[in-house]
Amino acid sequence: MRWVLFLSLFFFVGCSVHEVKPWQKETLAKESFNQGACAPSFTRFVHHIYFSKEGSKGGGEVGGGGCGCN
């Protein structure tokens, strides 16, 4: 029984969510974290297909590099 409790404790600790604060988003703000940053020409092509099919564009990236800026 003790072991079950001990192991379940580890399981529930793994479920905890650690919020990333705005001042901790240095890595997320890097250019490489933008969607499709590794292949910009291909991304442009994909965006063009999306625009042609959906009649809308944009909304696929985070403004301000994810730092929480407006």
Binding site: K21, P22, W23, G64, C67, G68, C69, N70
Partner: peptide, 26 residues
């Protein structure tokens, strides 16, 4: 961490040692 702003840049305005306003984000 003590101020815990919801985003940066975060500007806090103090008047005579008292917080009178804050502007979060650009």
């Amino acid at each position: 961490k003590a101020f815990d702003p919801a985003g940066i840049p975060a500007l806090y305005i103090f008047k005579d040692g008292k917080l009178v306003g804050s502007i979060i984000g650009a």
